[in-house]
């Protein structure tokens, strides 16, 4: 009997210990899971892995990447929103966290999540997209494209990675800013979209600087426009939407870390501290350099401001697009 009582007391003591250790000031005391809502091998996955590895060194706790692909990121984003809000399940996301629910609304579906359910923790990269035409295209500048589209609306075609995706949206923004209409041909991914330009099936597409740079250097494609506010180191000659006066067409393929809005503020602050140290980790910087992804780190509040402005542009573009066809 006495043994049982001792055991019970010991048990309670251990349980009490467990309760105290899971308090925010000791975060993290166990492995942290990072949901990547895309399959391995994409931009989000490749950004998340070095971040997680650096956090592992900062926290001295395992950081686990869990790829939960599906529905343009929707499946993984929902999973991160419904996980226990203790800060041990976090989410890496890109602009689809804004565009997926917004396109659901336009298409008359009940959105599977709302972006208000997530708090931004940090942004790591924010690459603009580069608009390209085939190397032997008659279009030498973006103005040529706009002039041709104005002369004959719908005569200039582009391939996208899919409806409401990260190529469709900036093209709609650029067309809107220039007051013209382009012909949209949706493909099933950025690779097939680029292949369509090289095969001369459509006239233009967009892609990340690091992906397109070798094709541009070989002369296979020609860059005409950068959707960012500043020029990129890889392609310093390509004019930005600001240079050309189309600043409403500003668009970035960014990757950020989010948490459920239900996670206690102190825990989120802990994560932000950890991330601030992780982005200074030399191995992290070196790995992103290797992939030619410039680090565009922003801490929570700055990222929040950036994200709100970005979301407004994306949501407006999706409303303008309306239902495709």
């Amino acid at each position: 009997m006495q043994k049982i009582v001792t055991c019970l007391i010991a048990g309670i003591a251990v349980a009490g210990l467990a309760v105290t250790t899971s308090r925010a000031d000791d975060y993290p005391t166990k492995p942290v899971t990072f949901i990547v809502p895309f399959p391995p091998g994409g931009l989000v996955d490749f950004t998340a892995r070095p971040v997680a590895a650096a956090l592992e060194r900062v926290w001295k706790q395992p950081a686990v990447i869990a790829n939960r692909p599906g529905a343009g990121g929707g499946v993984g984003i929902v999973a991160a929103g419904t996980a226990r809000p203790d800060g041990y399940t976090l989410l890496f996301a890109h602009p689809s966290i804004t565009s997926v629910p917004a396109s659901d609304v336009v298409l008359g579906r009940k959105p599977s999540f709302d972006r208000e359910q997530y708090v931004p923790i940090a942004r790591f990269v924010a690459d603009p997209l580069i608009l390209v035409v085939k190397g032997d295209s008659p279009f030498k500048t973006f103005k040529d494209v706009v002039d041709a589209a104005r002369k004959e609306p719908g005569s200039v075609s582009y391939s996208s990675s899919g409806a409401y995706g990260a190529v469709h949206l900036p093209f709609e923004m650029a067309a809107h800013a220039a007051g013209v209409k382009f012909k949209h041909v949706a493909y099933t991914g950025g690779g097939p979209a680029l292949t369509a330009v090289l095969g001369n099936h459509v006239q233009m597409t967009m892609g990340s600087p690091s992906v397109l740079a070798p094709q541009i250097k070989s002369g296979a494609i020609r860059p005409l426009l950068n959707t960012g506010a500043k020029r990129v180191a890889l392609l310093p000659d390509v004019p930005t939407v600001y240079d050309l006066g189309y600043k409403d067409a500003e668009f970035y393929l960014w990757v950020g870390l989010f948490g459920s809005a239900k996670i206690p503020a102190e825990t989120i602050a802990k994560v932000r501290d950890g991330v601030a140290k992780a982005v200074k980790d030399p191995e992290f910087i070196q790995q992103l350099q290797k992939m030619q992804l410039p680090v565009e780190y922003q801490d929570g509040p700055d990222f929040d401001k950036f994200w709100k402005a970005d979301a407004e542009r994306i949501e407006a573009a999706i409303k303008r697009i309306g239902k495709v066809e």
């Binding site: 992906v211 070798p214 250097k217 350099q289 290797k290 030619q292």
Partner: peptide, 12 residues
């Protein structure tokens, strides 16, 4: 993607 992670941007 694997090549890109190794810092090789594959092109023509």
């Amino acid at each position: 993607a694997a090549l890109m992670a190794h810092g090789i941007s594959p092109g023509p």
